[in-house]
């Protein structure tokens, strides 16, 4: 698998996801600077977490207009897999690669903690090593992760299997109490209609090694390697 990680000024999870990718694919991903305009032939593009452009204006809004994102969009349209984590998810919604928006958390605070997620589908390149309905533990670290889409869009997304993860209790129950940020229908991550683009607020790369407290995130990178190698 050939992978690239896009680096914006203010990205700060670029190294973390590169480490997790390398552990699964055995080689370092290509690090691509935001001012670049061309990408080589790739199987996977990762838009990492952080505070691109300081989150000024609106999270992800400025990064969405950077030179490299035009190329990312073109590649995604051709079917290249794109993974956006946290700020990367915000950038992908701002770019229009993913439906919906990410608003301020319902209690208006930044939240950093482990959450449980229900894997909604195992039929994608990102999740083939999980099982649908499985409960996994990933950390979140964001102030703007409150997902929203208009009812019509959301209904279509649900019908098309575009909900990737939902916040749930440790027992797998999707409840209001398990929703950390007020997201519509506990949504933590979504796919585009073709299922080649995934955005999620939780950080799989942060729990991809037992020493750091768990490794539920590793299966996502392993899935991609299995699917794309």
């Amino acid at each position: 698998m050939k992978a690239a990680v896009i680096v914006f000024p203010g990205s700060n999870c670029d190294r973390d996801v590169a480490v997790a990718l390398q552990a699964s694919m055995g080689a370092k991903p290509l690090m691509v600077w935001h001012r670049d305009t061309q990408l080589p032939d790739l199987d996977l593009i990762v838009v990492p977490g952080g505070f691109s452009y300081g989150d000024y204006l609106r999270c992800g809004a400025m990064a969405a207009h950077s030179p490299i994102m035009r190329e990312v969009k073109a590649k995604a349209d051709q079917g290249t897999r794109v993974l956006g984590i946290c700020n990367g998810f915000q950038i992908l919604t701002e770019t229009g690669l993913l439906p919906g928006v990410l608003m301020r958390n319902k209690d208006l605070k930044f939240i950093c903690k482990d959450v449980h997620l229900r894997v909604e589908s195992d039929q994608t390149d990102f999740c083939r090593q999980y099982q649908a309905g499985q409960t996994v533990r990933f950390p979140i670290a964001h102030a703007e992760g409150n997902y929203f889409a208009d009812p019509e869009t959301f209904k279509a997304m649900e019908g098309n299997g575009q909900i990737a993860f939902r916040y749930c209790s440790s027992l797998g129950e999707v409840t209001d109490g398990a929703n950390p940020n007020g997201s519509l229908s506990n949504v933590a991550g979504v796919y585009n209609a073709r299922h080649n683009v995934l955005g999620l607020m939780p950080h799989p790369e942060r729990l991809a090694e037992d020493l750091l407290g768990g490794s539920d995130g590793k299966a996502m990178f392993d899935s991609l390697v299995e699917a794309l190698s």
Binding site: C13, K109, C112, A141, R206, E209, L211
Partner: peptide
């Protein structure tokens, strides 16, 4: 308090 701080970024917090 500490849930408002990102205490895991950089991937080395044991």
């Amino acid at each position: 308090i500490y849930q408002q701080y990102d205490h895991m970024v950089m991937g080395d917090t044991v």
